[in-house]
Structure formats: C-alpha cells, structure tokens
Simulated scan of single mutants.
Amino acid sequence: MSTDVKKSWLASRLPCPAKETGNCAPTLERGAPYLARLPALITGAALLLLASGFVLAVYYNPDHGFASIQFIARNVNSGWLIQGFHATGATMLFAAVYLLLFRDIYRRAYTAPGELVWLLRVKLFALLLLVGWLGYALSDGAVAYWSLTDAANAATGLGGAAGVVGRWFFGGPNGAGTLARLEVFHAVLALAVLGTLGAHRCATRALARQAKPKHPVSCHPYYTAQTFAAFAVFALIFAVLMFFAPHYGLNPLNRAAADSLIIPAVLSPPWYLAPVSAVASVFSTTLGSIFGVIAMLAVLAALPWLDRSSPAGKRGLVYRLLMGLLLLDVIGLGWSVSDPACTISGSLTVFFTIWYFFHFLVLTPLVTALEAK
C-alpha cells in the first residue's frame, strides 16, 4: 500500500478537525437502538473512574497498600463512597465494553469503512485490561498479592529484552517499590485510555458523516434525549450494584490482608479479567502466556480482514448461531478459572481457548465466505 493510499484511507476514517466546516454535529439515522449510546456510556464511566481514582491516589500509600485502602474506606470523609464509585465504575465500564465488542461482532460493524473504529475499540479493550489488572494489583489483598507476586517473579526471571522490560516495569519482586511503580503506570495508562476515547470519538464522527441515512435527524435534540435516557438506566444499574452488591464478580478472599506465608485456596481474578486469565493459564511458560494474550487480542483486531462477507452482507442463520456459541465460550472461559475446585475445569479451559481461536481463524472466514455467495 503506497503512502498516498494510506493517507487517503486514514483521512477518510479519521479526518483532522481543522478540515471540518459547517455544523459539527453529524446527521444520524432515525430510530437507532439505545445500545448505540454505549460509547457515550463508556466515556462517562471512564471519566468517573478518573475522577474517583485521583482522589484515591491522594490517600493511597504503596508501603501499606491494603491498610491505606481500609483507611480510605473507614477514616476519610465519604471515602467509602469514592471507593465504591471506583470499584463499581470498573465493573460497569468493562460490562459496557464487552457488550460493545459483542454487538460490533454480531453486526459486523468492523467491515469497511468501520475498520479504524474497530481497531480503536480493540486498543481501548487492551488498555483497559492492563489498567484493570494494575488497579486490581494495587488493592494488595490476599489474592491480588499473589497475582502480582507471580507476575513480577515470572517477568523479572525472563532473559534477554523481555527480562529487561519486566525488571523495568515491576522494579523487582513484589513489594512497596513495585506497588509505587504500578500506581504511576496505572495513572499514565488511564490517561492513555482517555486519549484513545478521544481518537475513537473523532473516528465515529467521521464514520457518521460518511453514512447516508434514509430518514435523517439532527443529533440534538433527538439523540441527546436518547443519550440522557441511556445514562439514566446506566446510573440506575450502577446504584443498585454499588449499594446492594459492591463486591459483585470479585473474589471474596481478596478482602483479607495479604500474607506472604499463606496462599488463598482460590486465586481467581475479577470477572472482567477472567477470560484473559484463562487463555494465559493454558500455556505453561511465561512467554507462552504473554503470546496467548497477545494472540487473543490480535485475532480481534484482524476481524475486518478475516471476515469474507461484503460490507452490506446480511447475517445468516449459521453466523448468528456461531455468535451464540462465542458468547457461551467467553462465559465458559471466565467460569473455568473462577471454579478451580471443579476437576475438569483445566480441560474445559483448554477446550474453550481452542474454540475461541478456531471461531475467529477458521469458522469466521469460512462461514462469511459461504454466506456471501
């Protein structure tokens, strides 16, 4: 692909704001579903997490991570509320991102000219996974302590360039110095998430300008009212989780203080990290686990080129059936690492991982090519 072609491809999908003239609000199609407001909900949740995280960072002490979190919840004015906002906000943010990705795959929204929007969403998902794990490690609970210990020991024990990066990132074995470093990375990567959301916003606006709606309506007041309704439902679910199920999807053993001499019986991560953790656990080596996670995200990013259907092609029955199986597969991945007492969970994790890659690398090109005929 020549330089001029690359520039035209990028310019048509992410135009410079300086080139835009006239009304900055694109004309949209009437009757768009409420799930189309998911990017706005994700942005709102990210801003809430950034604001609450800034307050928590003021009081967080990496020398005594777990104790400082207890101090925030018990002694800081409204500290329990801010901590609840942050924890529940992470749950809601990841739920919205997972729903957005599944909706895009089902609708084939990644096909031309939506490739750049899809790539930015996959990048956002990857950044959120890393930011989420860093926040989980900073909790310094009994489970998070051993998750960080295993990761730090494995990374710093690598040889060559990978070992240099691991020692630079973690700073050595798990301890106060490691938590201090991770706190900085957590904040920096959170700002990178906001930058990605900004680029995603620009790309989606460019995509909306290219569309030619049959029944056009202006963004305001038609879709501002719809966005307000979506935020109201989002806030209601947020409030129910925060006040009635603040620890939903989290390992209850992580609410205990860490002990370097005691390994918890269940080392399952938060629900939003569980599918990725399951794929990483299939590989026996550290480099293998890293490769597995990168490959898991890479097949998502490659979907615009794995899909052989035309942009206007309809979803056939077989494709919809495969999407249901993919949903069950991801749920199975999360369950397999959250229930280690099950004797067959290890075999199921391998099976679900193989099916994940088989779905995207084999079934998706095959089924979309057949349905395009």
Rank of each mutant, 00 (worst) to 15 (best):
Ser2Phe: 10
Asp4Ser: 15
Val5Pro: 03
Leu10Glu: 06
Ala11Leu: 07
Arg13Asp: 01
Lys19Cys: 12
Cys24Ala: 12
Leu28Ala: 09
Arg37Asn: 11
Leu38Met: 09
Leu41Lys: 08
Leu41Ile: 15
Ala45Trp: 09
Ala46His: 04
Ala51Cys: 13
Pro62Glu: 04
Asp63Asn: 14
Phe66Gln: 00
Gln70Phe: 15
Phe71Pro: 00
Arg74Glu: 15
Arg74Met: 11
Arg74Val: 13
Val76Ile: 12
Gln83Glu: 07
Ala87Leu: 15
Gly89Ser: 09
Gly89Leu: 01
Ala90Ser: 11
Ala90Arg: 05
Val97Gly: 04
Tyr98Gln: 12
Leu99Gly: 09
Phe102Cys: 09
Arg103Lys: 12
Arg108Glu: 02
Leu119Lys: 08
Leu119His: 01
Leu120Pro: 04
Arg121Asn: 12
Val122Phe: 02
Leu127Asp: 04
Leu130Met: 14
Trp133Asp: 00
Tyr136Gln: 03
Tyr136Met: 00
Leu138Glu: 06
Asp140His: 06
Asp140Ser: 14
Tyr145Trp: 07
Trp146Gln: 07
Gly159Phe: 00
Val164Arg: 11
Val164Ala: 15
Trp168Gln: 08
Phe170Asn: 02
Gly171Asp: 05
Gly172Phe: 05
Gly172Ser: 06
Pro173Thr: 10
Glu183Ser: 13
Ala190Gly: 11
Thr196Met: 08
Ala199Glu: 00
Arg205Met: 11
Leu207Met: 12
Arg209Thr: 09
Gln210Phe: 04
Ala211Lys: 08
Ala211Tyr: 04
His215Gly: 09
His215Pro: 10
His220Leu: 15
His220Ile: 14
Tyr222Gln: 15
Tyr223Pro: 13
Gln226Leu: 14
Phe231Arg: 01
Phe231Trp: 07
Ala232Asp: 00
Val233Asp: 04
Phe234Pro: 04
Leu241Met: 03
Phe243Glu: 09
Leu250Thr: 07
Ala257Pro: 01
Ala257Asn: 00
Ile262Asn: 09
Ile262Met: 12
Ala265Gly: 13
Pro269Gln: 06
Tyr272Asp: 01
Leu273Gln: 06
Pro275Lys: 05
Val276Gly: 02
Val276Cys: 02
Ser277Gly: 14
Ala280Asn: 04
Val282Trp: 06
Ser284Ile: 13
Leu287Met: 04
Gly288His: 02
Val293Cys: 06
Ile294Phe: 11
Met296Glu: 02
Leu297Thr: 03
Leu300Met: 11
Leu300His: 02
Leu300Pro: 07
Leu303Pro: 00
Pro304Arg: 06
Ala312Met: 14
Tyr319His: 07
Gly324Leu: 04
Leu327Gln: 00
Asp329Tyr: 05
Ile331Phe: 10
Ile331Asn: 09
Leu333Ile: 09
Ser336Val: 01
Asp339Tyr: 11
Pro340Glu: 03
Cys342Leu: 15
Ile344Tyr: 09
Ser347Cys: 03
Thr349Ile: 04
Val350Asn: 05
Phe351Asn: 01
Trp355Glu: 00
Phe358Trp: 02
Thr368Asp: 00
Ala369Thr: 07
Lys373Glu: 13
